[in-house]
Each structure stands twice: as C-alpha cells, then as structure tokens.
C-alpha cells in the first residue's frame, strides 16, 4: 500500500486521536486511514521499517477499537456470539478475521480489533450489547481508558526485561499468553501475539500514562537500536510466515 502524506491525512481531522499524535507529527509520521480510523502508516520507508520492526519496533495502535465485558454472564454471552474464547485466564485467542479475545480473569474479557479493521468485532459486540437484556454482563469501554501499543521484534523480550519483572523470553512466555503486571512501574496488560514469525507484545495501560510509556519504552529500546514503526510494517510482518 502506498504511503500517504501528512497533508492528506491529519489526526486533527479525526475525532478519535491517539494521545501521541503530536509526537507522531513531530517525528514526521505519515498517516493512513483504515476503515473509520486514522493510524500511523510509517515513519520512514516501509521496507526499512519492516526490517527494523523485526529487530525491535514500537507501534501506537491507540486509535484501533477495543472493549471489554465483565460479569458472571460474560462467558456465556460471548459464547452465544459464536466467538472462540480462551479456556483459562491470562490467555488470548485469535478469531478467524484476526481480532483477539483476551481472558483477563474468570469473568472478564478484552476484545482487540484486528489491524486491518476487517472484522469490526469490537463495534459489532458493542452494538449487540444491551444492559437491560444481557443479564450479568457489563460493558467495559476501553477506547478511552487504555492506550494500546505494540512492541515487536526479536529484541522485544530483552527490552521488556529492563522494565518488567516477568520473564518474557519467547521460550518462557508462550504465544497467546498474558501478563497483567507492572511495566516501568505502571500497571499494564502485556499480551504476546506474534506477527507471523516475529514476536509481538501488545501493551495496554492507563490512557493518562500513554506518553510516559511511549517515551519510556523508546528510551529503553535505544540500546537495541529500536525505533517507532507504523502499521504498514506490522501488517507486512503478519504476512511473513
């Protein structure tokens, strides 16, 4: 896909912006519209960025939809929606169209839309949900409460080791595993779901800490020559099987 210039697509034209959009503009990011959202396409030439992303990259997915459901009826209601659900807490399962469903506890689930916005799982579930007719299920809007970052590459576990007490080496922390823990001394959900053969750790944390986490992660990535990356690099990695 071709890169779009910042003149053509600017975050200020969109109601939903990442908390990092000023940083993205300052870094010379090119933006791309994916369905009804705007996200960073790339910071440099995509081919170079893919290489860097497979080594160590950090992407901002905060404009991508996400939401949660919680309550004693959440499991059965999500089952009725014909979704594949993880059997145990702290596991994630990918759906046919690429969205991820994470089980955060026995009765709490988090839904992350796919990168292409092909499934629209989060929007569909939100539209189907009604507090009155859905007993024991509570909607947890996550678009405004949590930022969503992706740390990719073979050096990602080494980078995370500097900030987090959990062993995230790829042979210790399986694909689809989740750790809800402290990252750079802030609470975060870390979900490993690889893009093709490249390790990928999705990070969700309090939205008010987005800039702190972004800067802290980039700082921690410096010694491994890690760089910010856009969604085109992520997509290319996911196709690299």
């Amino acid at each position: 896909m071709s890169m779009q210039s910042t003149e053509q697509f600017s975050p200020v034209q969109y109601q939903r912006r990442s908390q990092l959009y000023r940083r993205h503009i300052a870094t010379g990011a090119a933006f791309k519209a994916v369905a009804n959202i705007l996200t960073v396409d790339a910071y440099s030439k995509t081919i170079e960025e893919v290489q860097k992303a497979s080594h160590l990259g950090l992407a901002d997915l905060s404009t991508h939809p996400r939401l949660g459901f919680k309550g004693s009826g959440a499991l059965s209601w999500l089952n009725q929606q014909k979704l594949q659900l993880p059997e145990n807490p702290n596991q994630a399962v990918q759906q046919a169209k690429g969205s991820l469903i994470a089980r955060l506890s026995q009765e709490e689930f988090l839904i992350l839309n796919d990168l292409d916005m092909a499934s629209l799982t989060a929007e569909k579930l939100e539209a189907r949900y009604s507090l009155d007719s859905t007993d024991g299920v509570y909607l947890l809007p996550r678009n405004d409460s949590h930022c969503w970052l992706a740390l990719t590459g073979i050096q990602a576990p080494d980078c995370l080791a500097k900030l987090c007490g959990i062993d995230m080496r790829v042979d210790k922390f399986a694909n689809g595993e989740i750790a809800q823990t402290s990252l750079a001394r802030v609470n975060a959900i870390i979900l490993r779901y690889d893009l093709g053969v490249t390790p990928c750790f999705y990070i969700l944390s309090d939205v008010s800490l987005t800039e702190f986490l972004w800067d802290g992660l980039l700082d921690s990535m410096q010694e491994f020559q890690g760089v910010p990356i856009g969604i085109s690099a992520l997509k290319k990695l996911s196709q690299d099987i």
Partner: peptide
C-alpha cells in the same frame, strides 16, 4: 492465585 508469582511491589 490469578496471576502467579509476582514482585511484592505489585
């Protein structure tokens, strides 16, 4: 019981 062994600071 939910998350396994963690640093006491958590």
């Amino acid at each position: 019981p939910l998350n396994g062994p963690r640093n006491i600071s958590e």
